[in-house]
Computed example of a mutant assay.
Amino acid sequence: MDTVILIPARYASTRYPGKPLAVLTGPDGTKTLIQRSWEAAMAVPEADAVFVATDDARIAEAARGFGAEVIMTSEDCRNGTERCADALARGGLSPELVVNLQGDAPLTPHWFLSDLIAAMRRDETLDAATPVLRCDPETLSMFLEDRKNDRVGGTTAVFDAGQNALYFSKEVIPYTGGKSFDPGAVPVFHHVGVYAYRPRALTAYGQWAEGPLEKLEGLEQLRFLENGAKLKCVEVDAKGRLFWELNNPEDIARIEKVLNA
């Protein structure tokens, strides 16, 4: 297999226990978050296979119920990247590319993953890459609203002139000072919770200890930066759609609004 999509999902989330089984209602009816994330992955034409990677029997049962293939992983996995590495080993998989689609992102358009895969195929020196999306004024206001209400919401990213990540944060970076911006000119980039890795990058990741910044922010991708590894940011285009992840119970209404628009 050339490209495999793994959807890491755990039940024991600190901020939102049971999140993968949260129910979202759209024009196609009521479905769990994990099912909508799986359907998003299945729409990616470059994927040779899609697996749900979990350590929880309830998530596994639900996933098999809607037709997903499941790889059971260790309970010791601390984040999605570790779970992907574990799933790769336990599933006996040997693809050229592994794509990690977080199980809380049902609004991820298939072309986000296609663009990410294309970037990895264009440059074989890339070990890992992740999409970033320039915020529009509405999305920036959602970020600022979450922080004002002391909610940990989406993640922002800053990167250098070569599109290599400099930092990721749950805070809104860079600081905008309450300024207003025209659509297409907002200097804040929303980090899309998707990653593409070559297997060697997953092997290296598993050998690194969890760093202080990763612990503080609760962001697994900072482990690459704390160990001097490059993580390429690939800018994607939402094509007029609103993109948001399910981070808190309050996000259900936001996502359902988009599903039903």
Rank of each mutant, 00 (worst) to 15 (best):
76 D>M: 09
11 Y>S: 10
259 L>C: 04
124 E>T: 13
231 L>H: 06
113 L>A: 15
118 A>K: 07
164 N>V: 06
79 N>S: 08
218 G>K: 11
121 R>I: 00
1 M>A: 15
125 T>D: 08
248 N>R: 13
130 T>A: 12
193 G>S: 13
33 L>C: 04
15 R>S: 13
35 Q>K: 14
31 K>F: 07
203 T>Q: 13
216 L>Q: 14
127 D>F: 00
108 T>G: 02
77 C>D: 13
8 P>D: 05
203 T>I: 04
177 G>N: 06
77 C>G: 05
50 V>A: 10
247 N>G: 07
200 R>T: 04
149 N>T: 14
139 T>K: 12
71 I>D: 04
219 L>R: 09
85 A>R: 14
93 L>Y: 07
217 E>M: 12
235 E>S: 04
254 R>Q: 01
238 A>F: 00
36 R>C: 05
259 L>G: 03
173 I>S: 02
256 E>A: 03
139 T>I: 00
125 T>N: 09
87 A>H: 01
228 G>C: 09
247 N>K: 12
139 T>R: 15
215 K>A: 13
254 R>D: 01
96 E>C: 06
40 A>F: 12
110 H>I: 00
150 D>N: 10
172 V>G: 01
37 S>C: 14
259 L>Q: 01
140 L>W: 04
46 E>I: 00
141 S>C: 03
123 D>G: 05
113 L>P: 01
177 G>T: 09
257 K>D: 08
54 T>Y: 05
94 S>T: 15
251 D>S: 02
197 Y>D: 04
186 V>E: 10
250 E>T: 03
242 L>N: 11
22 A>S: 14
214 E>N: 11
100 N>R: 15
87 A>Y: 00
96 E>T: 15
32 T>L: 05
119 A>M: 03
208 W>S: 02
41 A>S: 15
54 T>H: 09
75 E>Y: 05
90 R>S: 01
94 S>G: 06
230 K>G: 09
168 F>C: 03
1 M>I: 08
70 V>P: 02
18 G>P: 10
260 N>M: 09
224 F>Y: 14
22 A>Y: 03
202 L>G: 08
82 E>F: 00
50 V>D: 11
163 Q>M: 12
226 E>R: 05
216 L>S: 09
203 T>N: 07
117 I>E: 09
118 A>Y: 02
157 A>L: 09
187 P>K: 00
114 S>T: 10
243 F>Y: 15
210 E>I: 12
234 V>I: 15
202 L>K: 07
158 V>K: 02
